[in-house]
Nucleic acid binder design. Sequence first.
DNA 1: GCAATTATTGTAACCGCTTACAGTATATTA
DNA 2: TAATATACTGTAAGCGGTTACAATAATTGC
Lengths: 344, 344
Amino acid sequence: MNQSSNTIYDIAEEAGVSIATVSRVLKGEKNVSEKTRQRVEAVITRRNYRPSSIARGMTSKTTHTLGIVLPKLLNPNYAMIFTGAYECARRLGYSMSMFPWRSVTENEDKVNPALLLAERRLDGVIICVEYLPPEHHERLKQSLKELQQYMPIVLIGCVPEDLDYPTISYNMAEITCNIVDELVSLGHEKIALVGGMAGDQDQFRRDVGYRRGLEKAHLPFVDSYRVWSGGSAEDGEAAFSQTLSSLLPAHWPTAVIALNDMVAMGCMAAARQHGLRIPEELSVIGCDNLFCAPYLQPPLTSIDTHQQSMGQEAVELLLSGRKERKNARWEWVRRDSCGPCSIR
Amino acid sequence: MNQSSNTIYDIAEEAGVSIATVSRVLKGEKNVSEKTRQRVEAVITRRNYRPSSIARGMTSKTTHTLGIVLPKLLNPNYAMIFTGAYECARRLGYSMSMFPWRSVTENEDKVNPALLLAERRLDGVIICVEYLPPEHHERLKQSLKELQQYMPIVLIGCVPEDLDYPTISYNMAEITCNIVDELVSLGHEKIALVGGMAGDQDQFRRDVGYRRGLEKAHLPFVDSYRVWSGGSAEDGEAAFSQTLSSLLPAHWPTAVIALNDMVAMGCMAAARQHGLRIPEELSVIGCDNLFCAPYLQPPLTSIDTHQQSMGQEAVELLLSGRKERKNARWEWVRRDSCGPCSIR
DNA sequence: GCAATTATTGTAACCGCTTACAGTATATTA
DNA sequence: TAATATACTGTAAGCGGTTACAATAATTGC
């Protein structure tokens, strides 16, 4: 049995029918006589034949594949979004391809990477928006516009308002303001924010919420409490450690709001190195509620942003064709790393 | 400008040339006159035209897409493997699609899921082998065989010997035996193994290594020190907690080898709840060296299995066509959770 | 200035499948 | 039993590219 070729023609020939008939059994159409069907099915089984989705895509104009653009999966936060999207897509019969964030933000010589994505003729793409230097902002808008000619788009994350696409977003300003409120109600007055780079939408909103929270409590914005950090634990550790070292202990913050749980871990390490006890002398709160948060010492208070639901909703929105902007739910996960301010 | 259709025919028509010529400029062939090329390129740019990779795939028999089969991305261990594979694939011009582990192990009514994967006509697939109940073993072999008719396969992880495919694997027996050695040299005699289910290749080898290590040190295998656990932190916590509760403190192990870092976190939590200090009263060692390991209290000793390299090597092996079985490197990451046995 | 090259461009077949439509066999009706 | 409806099956035209080969245009040599 020569299996080098395994096409609908081979099946048709071996079963002694036309390719149209094979196609019909493949699709389970009813207008095929029982004995023909059985004969064809026997051949299909014997040869382990599977129709090429490539060829099918030619006529159906559909790939049953969704794309997802993510900055990096090593951050469990994105892994959760991916998983939510992926599981949902799978249930609905789609497979999922991953693409680098680069594909919609950078320009490589003459080729527009977004169009590279377009080549794939996916049935849709979810784009997880992340930090983007302002000079790339125009390019993102252009890429999205071009990409949209080829497939529907859903954005997810902290999306700039001027991007008019279906979106699942969360409101970092609201969340951060809420965190400040809570810390204030615990008696904290020296609250640090260890955040990301300027120009980042997500971070921008955090800053907005941070200042709003401080204002509400009539607390001053203190420059040195706004700490600049990358997104990893190492970054957070280095940045917060530096901050502590540069301040007199009397001026040390009594609470710190971290960009995310990884940075929060770093802050905790830095605090420990400076001899601070958590939460007695320093309250720490993260964001994302990673799997390891409950296992840190003390267990880390965090914000659950329901990443898996976000991913799932993004897929549903994408396939529904609706053009809505939806706000994601979020909630407190209070653990022991935050406590009342015990310092005068 | 009607952009509803954007095919090579549309471009050819608008540029006043034949589709063959458009195809030539698309592929950057040299035998096109400079002014024709420019005319065509202008049209392509104006219309944001991108050739369909689907149509291309019809003739080229290539999709420039690799598949990866993974149990779950929420475990950062797999996220690392994925990332390594993905980055490498991307560099080489491939995109990456993810598929569920189910696709090669389960059977859904009449459809063989492996063949569903085959439909995609990928340029290759990396299958990350995980726990598999023995009754599904035959089915896995069958699936792989059928799938292989359609695309090359590389296996990764703890792969059974009777699966004859190119493989990147690590030797859990060697690693575990090595761990026991080290714990013994630290003076430990009551060493627990918190491992996974029976039937799991990975676990099987751990048990082999565990027993071999004990034998070498002339230590007895103690049933109650072989703890059965799932792979999550909660699982580890529950399992080890139960073990401690069921033993008299005098019989508590002085060292515990955990399935992975997540389980190790759980063990640490359980130990704390039982009032054990780490590492003074209990040494803990995990595996996978997750990002959070250095931030646990105390920092967790672990084994770095170089997951990203594994992913990368899997892609290289897949595309090279070589048929080799390669062992992955691994190394100790010694931190403070392991120490000399201080209990007589 | 004309034949022989060489450079450029076009035609048509093909990749593997779907599907509208046509054709043939079988069943129903009168 | 012939006419007609119904069930099944086959033919051929796409889908959007690639590419061998043929055709045409531009150069070159003498």
